[in-house]
Amino acid sequence: MNMDDFIEFCKQGNPITGEDKELHGLLIQNSYEAIRITTQLNTSSHSREEIVDIFSELTGNKVDPSFMCFPPFHTDFGKNITFGKNVFLNTGCSFQDRGGIRIGDGSMIGMNVAIATLNHGLDLETRNTTFPSPVVIGKNVWIGSNATILPGVTIGDNSVVAAGAVVTKDVPENTVVAGVPAKFMKEIK
Rank of each mutant, 00 (worst) to 15 (best):
V87F: 05
K11G: 01
S44D: 11
P15N: 05
S94I: 13
N80H: 14
V161G: 10
D157Q: 12
N112E: 10
S133I: 06
N158I: 07
D4E: 15
A147S: 08
G92L: 04
V52N: 05
L58R: 00
G13E: 02
I103E: 04
G121L: 05
T59Y: 04
P172T: 05
E22Q: 14
F70A: 10
D170V: 11
A34M: 00
G13F: 04
V160I: 15
F88G: 12
P15H: 03
S145E: 12
V135N: 01
S56D: 07
A162I: 05
T126G: 04
M68Y: 14
P134T: 11
E50I: 07
G106H: 04
N146F: 12
T91H: 03
W142M: 08
F73P: 15
S47C: 09
E57M: 03
I115N: 00
S159T: 05
K21P: 06
L26D: 10
T82R: 15
E19K: 13
K11H: 05
T117F: 07
N14C: 01
T75C: 08
N2E: 01
Q40K: 14
V180Q: 07
V176H: 06
D157Y: 13
E22D: 13
D5P: 07
V136C: 03
V177Q: 03
M108D: 03
V160W: 11
V160N: 11
N174I: 04
L89Q: 06
I54K: 00
I81F: 10
R127V: 12
T91E: 07
V87P: 09
F184K: 11
G121K: 01
R127G: 02
T59S: 07
E125K: 14
E57Y: 02
G25R: 04
K189N: 14
G25A: 08
Q96N: 13
G60T: 09
M1G: 05
I137D: 02
V171H: 04
N146M: 13
E57Q: 13
P132A: 11
I81R: 09
S66H: 08
N146V: 05
V161Y: 08
N174G: 13
S31V: 01
T154P: 08
F70T: 15
N42F: 02
D76P: 12
I137H: 05
L89M: 13
E8A: 04
A182E: 03
S44K: 14
I35S: 03
M1Y: 01
L150F: 13
I143F: 02
V176N: 06
T75I: 06
L26K: 13
D53V: 03
G152D: 10
I16H: 01
A178W: 10
I143S: 02
V141K: 01
H120P: 09
S159H: 11
L124R: 01
S45H: 14
N30S: 15
T38Q: 07
V87L: 14
F67A: 06
A116T: 11
T168N: 10
D4W: 00
F70K: 08
L58A: 03
V161S: 06
V167Q: 03
A34W: 00
D123V: 12
I28Q: 06
K11E: 05
S66C: 14
V176L: 10
S159M: 05
N112V: 13
Q96M: 15
N112G: 08
M185Q: 15
N61D: 12
K169W: 08
A163H: 02
F70N: 09
K79G: 09
